[in-house]
């Protein structure tokens, strides 16, 4: 037990120092950017200084915040809707051979359509409000999750199914007791992808038609040649995606701890 405790401390210790290294790396990059740009003849309206981006963030804090919430709502809404439907459909497809033969090929076909090309249609159908952006973010999250969860549900060891058969387990017990836990690591891998892509979906939707959101702000800042504001908006978008990613990672840590430990 003592040995285990020290190793756990060592692990958290090394994790903390990994973080320090990553943050230091980013800081070094920013400082280098600042210094290089002070020397090199790069116009500020093409690439603003990091310090002026920070200044712009402070100066436009109200504007940025007001436009962050819509994007967060759209991305989160799309994330929840898209993944929820994907998981439900994945379970149904694995459950029923008929659905596997009918619905799955259609889903794969739709996956081939570039989402960016669907975005204007969504705005056309659903209007300029939240729902069109949620729909785009949902569509973009949907396919990786569908494919991954199907893969997870069917990745179950054949012998594990035979084992449950020996205990006369019902189909729903097989799903609940074996397939679902097996699929969890696959689900979380897909959810992590979906965090960044749902933010992307929301922003793309805002480009096409919106009076608010970070995507709208990107267009606005570009039109008005406000490079610092543009970069500040990009930074905020990145933070939003990273926070979502972090939340999913934390949930994974809670729900699929066994997977990390099995891999050592």
């Amino acid at each position: 037990m003592i040995a285990r405790d020290t190793s756990a401390t060592a692990r958290t210790g090394s994790r903390a120092s990994e973080w320090t290294v990553s943050v230091a790396g980013i800081l070094v990059l920013l400082v280098a950017w600042q210094l290089l740009e002070s020397v090199l003849p790069i116009p500020r309206y093409i690439l603003p200084l990091p310090t002026s981006i920070v200044q712009s963030m402070v100066r436009n804090a109200g504007l940025l915040l007001a436009n962050t919430w819509p994007t967060v709502i759209e991305a989160l809404g799309g994330f929840v809707v898209g993944n929820w439907v994907a998981v439900g459909l994945a379970v149904m497809i694995v459950w029923s051979k008929t659905l596997e033969r009918t619905v799955y090929p259609i889903a794969i076909l739709f996956r081939g359509i570039p989402i960016i090309a669907i975005a204007p249609i969504m705005v056309l159908w659903l209007g300029n409000g939240y729902s069109s952006k949620i729909a785009i973010a949902a569509l973009i999250s949907f396919f990786p999750t569908l494919v991954n969860v199907i893969k997870g549900l069917t990745s179950v060891d054949h012998q594990a199914l035979e084992l449950l058969d020996m205990f006369s387990a019902s189909k729903s017990q097989v799903f609940r007791l074996v397939r679902w836990p097996y699929a969890m690591p696959y689900l979380f891998a897909a959810l992590k992808i979906a965090t960044t892509s749902s933010v992307l979906g929301a922003i793309v939707g805002e480009w096409i038609g919106s009076e608010q959101g970070l995507g709208y702000l990107v267009i606005l800042a570009t039109d008005q040649y406000r490079a610092s504001l543009l970069f500040a908006t990009l930074a905020i978008s990145t933070v939003v995606a990273l926070v979502l990613f972090g939340l999913v990672g934390a949930a994974e840590h809670v729900f699929v701890r066994w997977h990390e430990e099995t891999r050592g």
Binding site: D157, Q173, L177, V178
Partner: peptide
């Protein structure tokens, strides 16, 4: 009929006891 495979097939997300009482849970 009980069956034991070459691989123990214990589920990694269940404790030893939870694995062992799986057949009771199913029934």
């Amino acid at each position: 009929v009980g069956f034991v495979f070459q691989d123990s097939l214990l589920f990694p997300w269940r404790t030893v006891l939870e694995n062992v009482w799986l057949p009771f849970e199913i029934g």
